[in-house]
């Protein structure tokens, strides 16, 4: 029987190891505490001209909601500098009210920024022409409930000026892809279950074969198999070279499919980087070994002390994205207030 050992060695005595993050020299960007979300210059995300080259590029993007009289009410997003490369799966994380949806709405032109700029696929966010290349799945399927599945896709297809002949071919394919059978696609949307509504919502987001797909809570309402299929689809989209922006609370799902993530909290970007790097615990060393018998286990401590283990692998252990998320939020909630409190 092959045995496996995993041993954690802590450099510092800390039961709750503090996240330090990788160095700025790596692919991970870390916004400074003094000026969160500060624009990082032409080298941002390794791109020389991110406004044109990046899938999404924001610079000082802010949104302040005001009341009827124009008085400030809620600062939903504050000076967000973010660059999402083309072809990557990017996760937008944060607790409720952190500014995720505001960011998505700003990128889609559903609301207008108070300050800053946002570029999507090289054009100003909200531009009608750029919508030709975008697919958007909202957090709930906001569709005309008096249409059936096929009619819905035909309607959105016509908005993209897809020829009827092509639509006749593409609509059944898409409905197959999202798993809506013949019977379901003839039913009115008001008769759909939540899972079916998510599937048709996804289908409308993909009707134009988009370059950039924004998915807001895509797995909500889906059963485990549906969730798995959704994740497979996201990976498949990535493999096709498409950019996917994923906004989800299901961190395990995000961890499974995302290349990079950012965590927003109270309208500010708290962290940004590769999922693998972010989940590394830098102040803990992990030694993994194979081929050790039961007798050798007793001598493990001494063995390690003497650095005599065969095939020893010394790495940093990884935490889960969930642990990272909780830690970031907790660290930023210094006044003990609720993490969802308004600000």
């Amino acid at each position: 029987m092959q045995m496996s050992l995993s041993l954690h060695l802590e450099r510092k005595s800390n039961k709750n190891p503090k996240f330090e993050g990788p160095s700025m020299a790596t692919a991970v960007e870390q916004p400074s505490a003094a000026s969160p979300g500060r624009f990082m210059g032409p080298t941002d995300a390794g791109l020389t001209n991110p406004a044109v080259e990046a899938a999404v590029h924001t610079r000082g993007l802010s949104k302040l909601y005001t009341d009827f009289w124009g008085r400030p009410k809620v600062r939903a997003l504050e000076s967000l500098d973010l660059t999402i490369r083309r072809g990557e799966v990017f996760g937008l994380l944060g607790p409720n009210g952190s500014g995720k949806s505001t960011t998505i709405k700003l990128l889609l032109g559903l609301i207008f920024p108070t300050a800053g700029q946002a570029y999507v696929l090289g054009e100003r966010a909200g531009s009608v022409t750029i919508n030709q290349k975008i697919g958007f799945l909202p957090e709930e399927s906001y569709l005309y409930r008096f249409l059936n599945g096929e009619e819905t896709l035909h309607f959105y297809g016509r908005l993209f000026k897809i020829p009827r002949r092509e639509l006749k071919k593409r609509v059944p394919e898409l409905l197959d892809t999202v798993g809506l059978d013949e019977k379901a696609r003839k039913r009115k949307l008001r008769e759909y279950s939540k899972g079916m509504a998510r599937r048709i919502g996804l289908a409308q987001a993909l009707i134009n074969d988009p370059e950039l797909v924004l998915l807001d809570e895509p797995t909500t309402g889906l059963d485990p198999i549906g969730t798995r299929e959704m994740k497979d689809l996201i990976v498949s989209l990535k493999n096709q070279g498409k950019t996917v922006i994923l906004c989800s609370h299901l961190l395990a799902d995000v961890q499974d499919v995302c290349d990079r993530i950012t965590i927003l909290f109270r309208g500010k970007m708290q962290t940004l980087g590769d999922v693998k790097d972010l989940c590394q615990v830098k102040d803990v060393t992990q030694i993994e070994a194979t081929g050790l018998g039961p007798l050798q286990l007793a001598e493990l401590r001494a063995f390690v002390d003497k650095l005599g283990a065969k095939n020893a692998a010394i790495t940093h252990p990884t935490t889960t994205l969930e642990e990272l998320f909780v830690r970031v939020v907790r660290d930023n909630t210094q006044d003990g207030s609720s993490y969802t409190s308004s600000h």
């Binding site: 889609l108 032109g109 919508n131 030709q132 906001y142 959105y156 908005l159």
Partner: peptide, 14 residues
């Protein structure tokens, strides 16, 4: 109100 407008204005519809 029903937010259906989200899926219309995010298409290339002026």
């Amino acid at each position: 109100e029903t937010k259906v407008i989200f899926t219309v204005v995010t298409k290339p519809t002026s």
